[in-house]
Design a protein around this nucleic acid. Structure first.
Lengths: 198, 198
DNA sequence: GCTATCTTGGAACAACCGTTCCAAGATAGG
DNA sequence: CCTATCTTGGAACGGTTGTTCCAAGATAGC
């Protein structure tokens, strides 16, 4: 009996996600959201709630549609250190070039600013960190006996996680991809066993 | 002949610095600055200019009075890897406990949000990154021949710099200091030569 | 085609934003 | 003590914020 929505909610949410991802929460006004999505304030509020709920939904969409697939692929990649290398290569590439260049990571971005104070947001942040850590740990597992002697894979995964956040942050300020690659390579190479020269 | 200021500009700037450091630019209104400092809008605008100039001056103060001393101490510390260890220990301690716990690093915080778009701010960000990198590189120099064979000190300094930004970011979201320490320890330990067991 | 029910466009809202302005107050040289 | 000059308090500004509200429009079952 009732009327039906004149738009695709997920397509709209993607637009909103891109807006908040690039510009942040505090800087992006509802007026900009209205302008970017094309729909009216009424539809916006009726479908998603207020600005806070809209941001949280956009952030969740980012985690599920942008981050999770890559993280899962990393966890499932059985190539060992090569998998970790590939992950960081693509990360740096995506952060410094192409459509989303210099946008950083929406989750990393959320760490600063008012959005990080929200308990619901904080939960997403911690979940994202934990998933990335677990994926890096899983990626290291097949290479366990090919790592440098004495290496603790859990601690190594922790280190690589922190490194990823560093890359995400610095990429937003225009860091040179070559420099980022060099820093990441130093970390990964330090996990390889020293070559023997008898 | 003229009247003289009824307050100490640098003491006020310190208050402002703390405010912007903890809460960010976009979230902190001039009204809050007025309330925190106790002085009037007139004095504020006459002394520091608008909000943008006020933020930049507070950020510069942070770099010069908070960051630079620690970074210089790191560069001058001749103990090698122990110097790097001490630097990160104190960093994590300051980020997770005490007066400024969970505030993160004001410079790292500036990477996200509208402030990062300002060319003047961007310059401070790059300068800070470069100083930290150079200090870490200098701290590694005395340990050069005590590092793991094949280690590139320049690349290692790059890696440690990224790691520091990761620590700063994650600390704001309430990361456990023990976890942070473990990740950092993994990075530093990976620079040590493998123990020989003959 | 009628109608109950939802959606939509857009006006309107109070609250707050950063900034400006000016009269009143404070100061130090003459 | 007087006065030129700067500072200070606080009112006021136009613009923007997120949100609400309602009449008009669209839809699908009867």
């Amino acid at each position: 009996m009732p009327d039906v929505k004149h738009f695709d909610p997920d397509a709209v949410l993607e637009q909103v996600e891109r807006l908040f991802w690039q510009r942040g929460t505090a800087t992006t006004g509802i007026a900009e959201v209205v302008a970017a999505t094309g729909l009216s304030r009424s539809s916006l509020y009726a479908t998603f709630g207020g600005k806070r709920e809209l941001y949280v939904k956009a952030l969740r969409r980012y985690v599920e549609r942008r981050s999770a697939p890559v993280v899962q692929a990393l966890a499932a990649d059985g190539r060992g250190l090569a998998a970790v290398e590939a992950f960081f290569d693509r990360l740096i590439e995506a952060r410094c070039a192409g459509e989303h260049a210099r946008w950083g990571c929406m989750v990393a971005n959320a760490h600063t600013g008012a959005e990080g104070g929200d308990p619901e947001v904080r939960e997403v942040l911690d979940q994202h960190q934990e998933r990335l850590r677990a994926a890096l740990r899983a990626a290291l597992e097949p290479a366990r006996d090919r790592l440098r002697p004495g290496t603790d894979p859990d601690a190594a995964a922790e280190m690589l996680t922190l490194l990823a956040y560093g890359v995400n942050l610095r990429s937003r300020a225009g860091a040179d991809p070559g420099v980022l690659r060099r820093g990441v390579a130093a970390a990964i190479d330090s996990l390889r066993p020293t070559e023997e020269h008898p």
